[in-house]
C-alpha cells in the first residue's frame, strides 16, 4: 500500500495489547515520550479472547495515573485497528500525532529532552 505515517511514531511490538501494563506506559513517559497509544485488534477479534478489552480498561486506569501526576490524560489512548487495515493505522498515527502536537511537549521530560522536543514541535 506504501502508506506513510508520521516518523515520530515509534512502534513497540507486543504479542497482544493485553501485555501492556501501567508500568510500561509510565516508564515510557519517564523516558521522555510525549504520548502513548495502544493499537489493539478490533473488539471481538482478539486471538487471546479478551486481551484488547483488558488493555482498554487499563488505559482508563493509566489516564487516572497521568491525571494524578499532572499530565493530560489524553496523552495515552486506546485504538482498535484491524490487522489488515493499513490505511486506518496510518490515519490513527496522524490523528494521535496531531493531538499530541496540540498538547505540546510532555511537561515531565527532563530539561535536556525538552530542548530536543522544542525543535521537533516547532518544526
Amino acid at each position: 500500500m506504501r502508506l506513510s505515517y508520521p516518523t515520530n511514531v515509534k512502534i513497540i511490538k507486543v504479542p497482544c495489547t493485553g501485555r501492556v501494563d501501567a508500568v510500561t506506559v509510565l516508564k515510557s513517559f519517564e523516558s521522555g515520550v510525549d504520548g502513548v497509544y495502544l493499537a489493539g485488534c478490533e473488539i471481538g477479534d482478539c486471538h487471546f479472547i479478551k486481551g484488547n478489552i483488558r488493555a482498554k480498561k487499563r488505559v482508563v486506569y493509566m489516564k487516572e495515573l497521568l491525571k494524578e501526576v499532572g499530565l493530560e490524560p489524553e496523552r495515552v489512548e486506546m485504538y482498535h485497528i484491524a490487522t489488515s487495515d493499513g490505511p486506518r493505522f496510518a490515519q490513527v498515527a496522524k490523528e494521535m500525532t496531531e493531538k499530541i502536537r496540540a498538547l505540546g511537549p510532555s511537561p515531565v521530560r527532563g530539561p535536556e529532552k525538552t530542548e530536543e522536543a522544542k525543535e521537533v514541535f516547532e518544526a
Partner: peptide, 19 residues
Amino acid sequence: EREVAVLASELKLSRTKEG
C-alpha cells in the same frame, strides 16, 4: 511489586515536572 513500580514512576514523573 507492580504497585511499587507504579508509585515509583508516578513520583519520578511528578518530581521531574516540579524540576
